[in-house]
Design a protein around this nucleic acid. Structure first.
Lengths: 152, 152
DNA sequence: TGATTTTTGCAACTATGTTGCTTTTTTGTA
DNA sequence: TACAAAAAAGCAACATAGTTGCAAAAATCA
């Protein structure tokens, strides 16, 4: 059972890489694993720290760019000069991202989460403006931090 | 008439500074003017270019921070590592920002506009999450670029 | 006008992101 | 399994972005 689980988890990491036609390398495996283990989104800096000194900074930049291009991760806009990245849904692929979720920024723990909840903003754009893609960022307090606050 | 107008426009620049209890300096006047003249939002880099070599980079950083703190401008999250800033509505003040507008990012001219159109996203957050602030980023083609595309 | 407070500019530094090139690793095939 | 071709990683050097402390200059207020 333990073995079975390990095989599955290795496959889970390998699959996305092979599926997207990427060669499987140490850094890609490691970075993908970091994303899979992680509830919140990761910045370049986070990855650098979590990966230890194992990889060159440049490799991390290039890996993130590759993952973005192939639709494995998506970038989450922020106002703090530290773009975060998170895994995509299966529907995403090279050149197109299709997310029907919102991004939640916790003002307490500073983590950013993807919440898979449909949002249908009631957009009334002025004449002439054509919307293609909508990104909703919600700031507030996340589930865990709310619980902590309640207890205190 | 021309004189009258000039007085008014100077007043428009001075008012927000005095109103917020800020001392009036060359750089603050200049940077505020840039924002007022500008339709789209500005990044730190944009300001550096538009202001010429007049001001030290550090002064621009500090001025932007001051304007943010006082509620004169607000930061617009982006995914390209270049946070933009734009003027606030009158309702904003030190410590609180109250915007009921969306941010529109034109994929053609790369400009970012504040559109004063009410948005009421239909947020169904999971249990435990508390929303405080919602930021809506819309990517698409702006009015002017749509017109250009039509003509071509 | 002059003293006090605030802001600016400068220098030095840290962090972040990019590019070209060589070495290493991966892949696909024999 | 070994080998050649292709792809990626690592390294160095560079470019850009952002921060901090401090002295000089400017703005405020009496």
């Amino acid at each position: 059972m333990a073995v079975r689980k390990q095989i599955e988890s290795t496959a889970r990491v390998l699959d996305p890489l092979k599926q997207k036609g990427l060669s499987v390398t140490g850094s890609r495996r490691k970075i993908l694993q970091l994303f899979m283990q992680q509830k919140g989104a990761l910045s370049h800096g986070d990855i650098e720290k979590k990966a230890g000194v194992t990889f060159d900074r440049v490799t991390i930049y290039r890996t993130l760019q590759t993952f973005l291009d192939k639709g494995i991760i998506h970038a989450i806009p922020t106002a703090d000069n530290a773009v975060r990245y998170a895994l995509c849904q299966d529907e995403c692929g090279p050149g197109h991202h299709d997310h029907q979720h919102i991004h939640f920024i916790c003002s307490r723990c500073k983590q950013i989460f993807c919440l898979d909840h449909f949002v249908t903003p009631d957009l009334h754009l002025p004449k002439g403006y054509q919307a293609k893609d909508v990104d909703v960022l919600v700031k507030g307090v996340c589930k865990e931090c709310s619980a902590i606050a309640k207890r205190a």
